[in-house]
Design a binder for these strands. Structure first.
Lengths: 144, 144
DNA sequence: ACGAGATGGTAAGAGACTCTGACGAGATTG
DNA sequence: CAATCTCGTCAGAGTCTCTTACCATCTCGT
């Protein structure tokens, strides 16, 4: 892992840069109580709601940790839990009102950063990058 | 951050896949005492040695946390600390013997994964991807 | 139907990781 | 030489994650 520049580090650097920008922007917009760990779970809540177990798998943590973080997100008003009509054991985690507002803000920041990247790379190469990453996802993302 | 596929998530997925492979391989090779946090610091130790403060900056953590992790890495034999001849306050963190062996192993695993990616994308597009990421690094990596 | 096993979720406790604030020792600048 | 900066450490607290264990509910085979 110590050679000049392996592909992993090359992937990680822009990811972290983007994440940092989103956090700074959210904090500036009043969403300053969101921690990185909470955000990584919140980010994966599907439009129709997600089960805690599904969130845990996709975030790469145990369901206990996911439950812990969802508790905090619920207390802070980012998500709400409703019973899952399809399964009496399960509850669906859904984006709540405050969460939806934070999504709006972060969406704007992501668009801003992506615009900067596009300005640096050029529109054609930016599209190329996205296409390459999407292709790579086929063999690196266990969830589709 | 909740839309179907922002570029950040696209970057993160292959990164995590690679990291997971390296960890599994290291553990299988007997380096099973290395934690993710330790590895993220260890990964950034420069060939000639690095100062704790520099490692902290590059890993995006405080110098206290970095010192804590270097302590563990030292105890486990991955790194050693030597006085910095250029600065009496500082000590240089260098890769130790066991650390060097782990680097060899992880280098092999990274090469293996990159070969799989190349097989999936094709040699030309893999090179394209690396070039694009290297370009992106210019505006997302504060350290060069 | 009904029992066995799988699955969604929670609880308790411990350990790992990180932060803020404060500090000493050495370097740098004027 | 004095003021200031930088490297690193210590102390304490908070956050995040894990393992182990458990209950409730669903699913499947008989």
């Amino acid at each position: 892992m110590t050679e000049p520049l392996n592909t992993g580090l090359l992937l990680f650097l822009p990811y972290r840069a983007l994440e940092a920008r989103v956090f700074a922007g959210l904090a500036a917009a009043g969403f300053d109580d969101l921690t990185p760990a909470q955000a990584r779970v919140f980010q994966r809540v599907a439009p129709g709601g997600s089960r805690t177990t599904a969130l845990a798998e996709q975030a790469g943590i145990t369901k206990q940790s996911a439950g812990f973080l969802v508790d905090q997100l619920e207390r802070a008003g980012y998500v709400e839990r409703v019973p899952d009509p399809a399964d009496g054991r399960a509850r669906l985690v859904r984006v709540a009102e405050r969460g939806a507002r934070s999504v709006e803000v972060s969406r704007g920041i992501v668009a801003e950063v992506e615009a900067e990247w596009e300005a640096h790379l050029g529109a054609r190469r930016m599209a190329q990058l996205r296409r390459l990453l999407a292709d790579l996802r086929e063999i690196t993302d266990p969830w589709r």
